[in-house]
Write a protein that binds this DNA or RNA. Structure first.
Length: 279
DNA sequence: AGCTACTCCTGGTAGC
DNA sequence: TGCTACCAGGAGTAGC
């Protein structure tokens, strides 16, 4: 499922084909994808001036007569895909939204499970403003993470998945990051020691950077780059989807548990549960 | 404040 | 083979 590295890959791929283009017409095949009933009139005639990413959101800034005119905010959720292709192009049976551009290309938003969104937002900050820091930005420092973890009293994995805490991690990269950090997902955030926070910070950045370099992870039929290529980071997985298999580091069998209703993968030896405090 | 449960969806798969 | 039942899971929300 698309997380920060996958969305970054998509944005890098479609940016050049979208920036500077004007939307000539819009076709919505599934209303819930665009949410608002006036999506078409809000986007048709607008020029796409900047395509960028915030956390797992794809943001397309719009302008009319050189003046800012809101943005399209897209989220792939589980199975969303974006294609920008010349006609004729068949997006298949799961097409949800089509935007015809002034160069003859068409932007297709395709989504099997219909969880994805492709909305117009007059003020995208209403959504994006709630998000925590970008984990690859200068805002995300060791000091910040160390302090912020202790300021919360949360299950560590659940906290890292909370987009208002830190924005862009999902189930896969959290599991991978926690394994590399030697931290159990059920660790209480307030009990993470400074040295552990520093390790966690380094591993979050290392995992995300490496995954971006490999154009994300593709382990099922869903995520592909917009060019149709699979990502390569799944070859680096140490725990995600590897329950029952030996840990690549110590050989112990990887276990699966559920944390906050999410499938969770741990090496019980590399990620020991911290002993309960006797009190 | 933090937690669980529920919702949205459908392809894939386990079990029979 | 063909059927059914259940699972995966971002994010939002309701309720405790």
């Amino acid at each position: 499922m698309p997380e920060l590295p996958e969305v970054e890959t998509v944005v890098r791929s479609i940016r050049k084909r979208l920036e500077g283009r004007t939307i000539e017409s819009a076709l919505v095949h599934w209303r819930r994808t665009v949410v608002a009933p006036d999506f078409e009139e809000r986007v048709v005639g607008a020029r796409m001036v900047r395509v960028w990413r915030r956390a797992k959101y794809i943001v397309i800034d719009l302008a009319r007569k050189k003046r800012p005119a809101g943005a399209i905010v897209g989220h792939l959720r589980m199975t969303g895909r974006i294609h920008v292709e010349k006609r004729p192009f068949d997006p298949g049976p799961y097409k949800k939204v089509e935007l015809a551009l002034d160069d003859g290309r068409v932007l297709h938003f395709v989504d099997v499970r219909k969880f994805g969104r492709f909305e117009f937002a007059a003020d995208p900050e209403r959504v994006l403003g709630k998000l925590g820091p970008e984990p690859l930005s200068d805002d995300f420092t060791v000091q910040w993470l160390d302090t912020a973890l202790r300021a919360k009293r949360r299950v560590l994995k659940s906290l890292l998945l909370d987009q208002t805490f830190v924005a862009g991690l999902g189930n896969i990269y959290v599991d991978e990051t926690l394994h590399r950090s030697g931290l159990h997902p059920l660790t209480r955030s307030e009990r993470v020691k400074p040295a552990e926070a520093a390790r966690l910070h380094a591993e979050i950045q290392a995992v995300l950077t490496s995954a971006i370099e490999r154009e994300g992870s593709s382990f099922d039929v869903f995520y592909r780059t917009p060019e149709g290529n699979p990502g390569q980071y799944q070859d680096e997985f140490r725990v995600y989807g590897r329950d029952g298999k030996p840990c690549r580091k110590c050989g112990t069998i990887i276990e699966r548990l559920v944390v906050g209703q999410r499938g969770t993968h741990v090496c019980p030896r590399c990620q020991p549960r911290s002993p309960k405090r006797s009190k």
